[in-house]
Design a protein around this nucleic acid. Structure first.
Lengths: 150, 150
DNA sequence: TCCAATATGTAGCCTTGGCTACAATTGGCA
DNA sequence: TGCCAATTGTAGCCAAGGCTACATATTGGA
């Protein structure tokens, strides 16, 4: 009875293996972009609010150690998203700024959608931080239509 | 000009440091529970659909190697969520079954909500896989009210 | 009955993203 | 002007969760 119903059949009610695997894989890899997006958006916000983004501030706001932040910023620099001189602040490249802008728009739209369906504002803000990285463009478009149509 | 506006002030437009750090921290740690939930739900689905959950099937459906699955199952066993005999299938404990049920309910509710705001069914299914782990109980309650009220 | 295919388990490696501890630089102010 | 505190950078550690390669167990069918 052990190796019987295993020949790709007998999947009553379950999605096809390939589709489900793709889905889970996408959810997994979304997580690696997520941090980049968080950083880009936060750096952009900090520059807008106080004129510069400093590693220590970023670390404090993300709730991680400054060492973690500096290591991550090195990765973003390698990917051409930020620039920095030693002991000067962090700046976004054009690519980084574009990523920040896209992320911010998506973040706002997710919050708006959540609020529109009745989620309290503060809960919406908090949940959006996790949700936003998993919303596809197709879903985002639907969100925009729904929010606009109200 | 470098170390000037840093004394917790000058946060025009930005959320308070502590709140934002908590938010990001929560989003980060949600990710560790996420995998447990995925496994529990999938095991439950497999048992329902084909009478047993086998490591190879789980691996195939998650899109990871069987070695990864077996290592992860060991962790779940250590946490009392599943049991298994060597070369027999995997079974959920009461705690594991409860987790699966909670996760499944949440998953369905997220899909329903997405569909209700106009996201196509297949997109909703795919996105929900990533989104569901970041939806708080408060937001979930709002989702339920919204979906019911239609 | 026994063997080959499949499933399961183990070992060892890699990357990511955390951390602490220590080193170096900067800049304000006494 | 020189020193001290804060910021920034470096080094080395850890756990999680991937992987491949190899070892072991099981079972259906020749």
């Amino acid at each position: 009875m052990i190796a019987k119903a295993q020949t790709q059949t007998a999947a009553e009610g379950l999605p096809p293996v390939a589709a489900q695997a793709r889905r889970f894989g996408k959810a997994r890899s979304a997580q690696s972009h997520a941090r980049m997006e968080d950083y880009a958006e936060l750096i952009s916000d900090l520059i807008a609010a106080q004129g510069e983004a400093r590693a220590t501030d970023i670390a404090r706001r993300l709730g991680v150690s400054h060492a973690t932040t500096i290591k991550f910023l090195a990765r973003m620099k390698a990917e051409g998203l930020v620039t920095s001189q030693p002991y000067r602040g962090v700046f976004l490249t054009a690519a980084g700024a574009a990523l920040a802008e896209r992320t911010r728009k998506r973040h706002r739209l997710v919050v708006d959608l959540l609020v529109a369906v009745g989620v309290p504002q503060d809960v919406a803000e908090a949940d959006a931080e996790g949700i936003e990285h998993h919303v596809s463009d197709a879903a985002l478009a639907a969100f925009a239509r729904f929010v606009d149509a109200r």
